[in-house]
């Protein structure tokens, strides 16, 4: 399937900008401070396509912190917590859905 980076931007709910940290590939989220955080709770959430495009553009300004930025759906839960908006993002946040070999 086309990766989210290659898909047309659709915003019909809350979204955040996510990427992989350059040094280790870990999942990071774009914050209101124009920085990256490994914690989804720190993500800046926007709800319109224009805001999302602007957020993505600011995230792509430098590529020495994080790479492959794209807009990802999120869900705002009843208590205000931010959760990933689809299975792919859930797996990115929480890791594989089975116990890793050990």
């Amino acid at each position: 399937m086309a990766s989210p980076q290659q898909q047309k931007l659709k915003v019909n709910g809350p979204v955040a900008v996510t990427a992989n940290r350059l040094t280790d590939g870990a999942v990071v989220w774009r914050t209101a401070q124009e920085d990256w955080s490994p914690d989804l709770a720190d993500a800046l959430i926007v709800t319109t396509a224009d805001q999302a495009i602007a957020l993505l553009a600011s995230a792509q300004k430098r590529d020495t912190d994080a790479v492959g930025a794209y807009v990802a759906p999120v869900v705002i839960e009843a208590d205000g917590a931010i959760a990933p908006g689809n299975l792919r993002e859930r797996i990115r946040v929480a890791g594989p859905t089975f116990e890793l070999p050990h």
Binding site: T64, V67, G68
Partner: peptide, 26 residues
Amino acid sequence: LSGALSEDEFKPLRLMNGVYLQLHAY
């Protein structure tokens, strides 16, 4: 890592050595 190479420049070089970027890690 120092920024001397952009991601676009680096990606083909890492791929030539078998390094991919997956969902949550290289």
